[in-house]
Computed example of a mutant assay.
Amino acid sequence: MPLEAVPAGQASDGRGLVLFVPTIAVPGAPTAAELNAGTVKPLTYSLVPDGFRHATTENVINSGRYTLKQILELPGTVADTLEVQYVNGSPAETSLTEGVLGFIVHRLGVPNETAPAASQKVDVIPIRAGVQRKVAPTANTELQKVQKLFVTGPVQRDVAIAA
């Protein structure tokens, strides 16, 4: 058997975009117009380096059988959480006021300066913004806030932007 070929990787630097989008008519098919509207707020460079914390947990259903020594597994419910951390005075702070509803759109693999366009893949996360909490200041750091964004509906993963 021949050795496995090493696939080419892609650097993540400069290839991640985070947007706050107030309105998306069909979250499973956001349009380029919706993602480029004047009401959309780019948040990417408001965030600190580890400031976009989207996690997905898939629960397990244990499935036993009569006299079977092994427990089988089935996929269970899925839970998404999202927390952001950003510098004070940034668009994230002014856009994500407590209680605001909208969508966080996350795109990877495309240069940041490239506008959202048809066929690009994005995740669409419906949110309600929680309380903006101050991060304790430390030497040689910027003032920051951290905020829970409550996931309010199904997360759309790797959906193509419609024309």
Rank of each mutant, 00 (worst) to 15 (best):
F150K: 13
D13P: 04
P126I: 07
G38R: 11
D13S: 13
K145F: 14
L143H: 12
L143A: 14
A162D: 12
G64N: 13
H54A: 13
E58M: 11
A115N: 08
Q120G: 04
A5W: 05
L17G: 02
P126V: 03
G64D: 15
A129H: 00
T94D: 05
E113L: 11
N62H: 14
V40F: 09
L35N: 06
G102H: 00
E4F: 08
R53N: 15
S63A: 13
V155L: 01
R157A: 12
N112S: 11
V100H: 02
V122L: 02
Y45Q: 11
A79H: 04
G109N: 04
V122Q: 04
T97H: 03
N36S: 10
I24S: 03
N62C: 04
L82G: 03
A117N: 01
V110I: 08
G14E: 01
K148S: 13
P154I: 10
Q85S: 13
V159S: 00
S90V: 10
N88W: 09
Q144G: 05
E4M: 09
V26Q: 13
R53D: 15
S95Q: 03
N140Y: 12
T152D: 10
R128G: 06
A11Y: 09
F52M: 02
I161H: 01
S12Y: 10
V155D: 04
G9M: 08
V48L: 07
P30V: 07
E58S: 08
T23V: 14
Y45K: 08
V26G: 06
L74T: 07
G9N: 09
V110G: 01
G64V: 12
T23W: 10
A163C: 01
P30A: 04
P22G: 09
V21F: 08
V26S: 12
D50H: 12
V40M: 08
T152N: 03
T56P: 04
V124M: 08
G153V: 00
T114F: 03
Q10C: 03
A37I: 06
L19E: 02
R65V: 07
E142Y: 12
P7H: 06
H106D: 08
E113S: 11
E93I: 06
E34T: 03
Y66L: 14
V18I: 14
A115L: 12
A129G: 01
L43C: 10
Q147S: 01
N59D: 14
G28S: 15
R157E: 13
P22N: 08
V48E: 04
P75L: 09
I61C: 01
I161F: 05
V100R: 15
V131L: 15
P116H: 00
Q85R: 15
A33V: 10
V100M: 03
F103I: 05
T94W: 03
E58D: 07
E98N: 10
V146C: 06
E142A: 15
Y86A: 01
Q147Y: 06
R157G: 06
A136T: 15
Y86L: 02
K121F: 07
A163S: 14
V26K: 12
G130P: 00
T94E: 06
D13I: 13
A32Q: 09
R157Q: 12
Q120H: 10
I61P: 05
T57D: 03
G89N: 07
Q120Y: 00
L35V: 00
T94V: 09
E73G: 05
V18D: 01
G28F: 05
T77W: 02
K69V: 07
S95V: 04
A92C: 08
D80K: 02
L96I: 07
N36V: 05
L35W: 00
Q132P: 00
N88S: 14
